[in-house]
Amino acid sequence: MSGEFEPKIVGFLCNWCSYAGADKAGTAQSPYPPNVSIVKVMCSGRVDPQFVMAAFDKGADGVIMLACHPGDCHYTEGNLRALGRHRMLLRLLEQLGIEKERCVMDYVSAGESEKFVKVINDTVRAVRELGPFRPFSSHSGK
């Protein structure tokens, strides 16, 4: 590594669309930075806001939530639940003084490997520019 700040980002991906989209980026061998580590959930509706807050608490510099496009959710509307929770999270993060660019939600279908790579690149770039996340709880230290 070049000594440049390498952000740690946790990506929550739904099994049916986004995870498959990420797999397609793999099959297409489209390179992207290794900063995002993926946690698979069956549905983006499973992403508990606690997971996002815990990720920040445990040292993540950013979080990505990826879901099926509206209307395409394998479970009908879990993605819309995720959308609502993401909006709520943004308000909470704002209250805590955390930049909203650190918490991204987007839709990636199983076919959209290029979009997946773009979301990863954009988020990694944005978080890198923001610099390391300074934990909000005092016990976490620096």
Binding site: V39, V41, M42, C43, G45, R46, D48, A54
Partner: peptide, 27 residues
């Protein structure tokens, strides 16, 4: 799908094989 698990305000619902503890440990 686990939508209810994430929605339960009391943490009373367990999503088998995708439990909160399992996902937290992964994070």
């Amino acid at each position: 799908c686990g939508t209810c698990v994430a929605a339960c305000p009391s943490g009373a619902i367990k999503g088998n094989h995708f439990t909160t503890e399992e996902i937290m440990a992964e994070i």
